[in-house]
């Protein structure tokens, strides 16, 4: 409930996982609503740092209020999970607030079943 405040993501370790989930839109498609997972053990240190910067940018964007009269808009839920699958940090933002690089990351990752 910290609207208007920024909450930086925790550092991304090798066992961290990023979950990107898109919600909303004119219909609910279960296949498209599944979270898409980015496993940090497949990223180099520089890539993890770049990803962290994008998440910090998303957190800043999310601090702006959402348009509450809008309907059928889509929004993204981003979460960092630790090795045990516990959520360490999460943020939710309008599609239009989503940094373009994260949007591309979502598009490039097909839905994965959670292990």
């Amino acid at each position: 409930m910290n609207a208007g405040t920024e909450c930086q993501p925790p550092p991304l370790g090798i066992s961290s996982r990023l979950s990107l989930r898109r919600e909303g839109g004119i219909a609910h498609f279960p296949g498209l609503a599944q979270p898409r997972l980015v496993c940090c053990d497949r990223l180099g240190e520089a890539q993890r740092e770049r990803l962290w910067q994008l998440l910090a940018e998303a957190a800043r964007c999310a601090a702006a209020p959402m348009a509450t009269d809008a309907v059928d808009r889509r929004r993204f839920h981003l979460a960092i999970e630790d090795a045990e699958g516990r959520c360490q940090w999460s943020v939710e933002l309008d599609e239009q607030q989503m940094p373009g690089a994260l949007l591309r990351l979502w598009r490039d990752h097909k839905p994965l079943s959670r292990g």
Binding site: N2, A3, C7, S19, A62, R86, C87, Q88, V91, L93
Partner: peptide, 13 residues
Amino acid sequence: MTDIQHVSRPFVP
């Protein structure tokens, strides 16, 4: 998805 420790800005109606 349990034990949310930090929530930056959840959507709340």
